[in-house]
């Protein structure tokens, strides 16, 4: 469930940011945001409806397609991506707790 909200919420926020950036660039920012600010309760209802619609339509398709894709890839000898950061994957001993802590 958390994964769904991260996916749906992340896309919504990112899409709003992209649209707002274009609105600001092309000068229709106020025209776009004024009705949303005036009708806050409708905006909140719209966001809830969006999540519901997203769950019913996109998320269901997404999960089905991902399962299908995973099934198709089953048995493929995938390699794990290598983390190129220095010291990545090196297991160090845990720090000793300070005396008195």
């Amino acid at each position: 469930m958390l994964d769904f909200f991260k996916r749906a919420g992340g896309q919504l926020v990112a899409a709003i940011c992209a649209v707002q950036a274009f609105a600001w660039l092309f000068g229709f920012f106020d025209e776009l945001t004024q009705p949303l600010r005036e009708h806050r309760e409708l905006t909140a209802l719209g966001v809830i409806l969006y999540f519901g619609l997203y769950y019913i339509t996109y998320d269901a398709t997404y999960r089905a397609q991902k399962m299908r894709y995973k099934k198709r890839l089953r048995g493929a000898s995938l390699r794990l991506p290598v983390n190129k950061k220095p010291g990545a994957g090196v297991v160090r001993p845990a720090k000793r707790p300070r005396k008195g802590a």
């Binding site: 899409a15 719209g46 409806l49 339509t57 398709t61 997404y62 397609q65 299908r68 894709y69 198709r72």
Partner: peptide
């Protein structure tokens, strides 16, 4: 905004053959 999830779902469904092909190539 409200059409977006529906359109995305349709696009995802329509491109399943592309992903199948990708999986086979991989």
């Amino acid at each position: 905004v409200f059409c977006y999830p529906v359109v995305s779902a349709v696009i995802l469904k329509l491109t399943e053959r592309t992903r199948d092909e990708l999986a086979d190539v991989v």
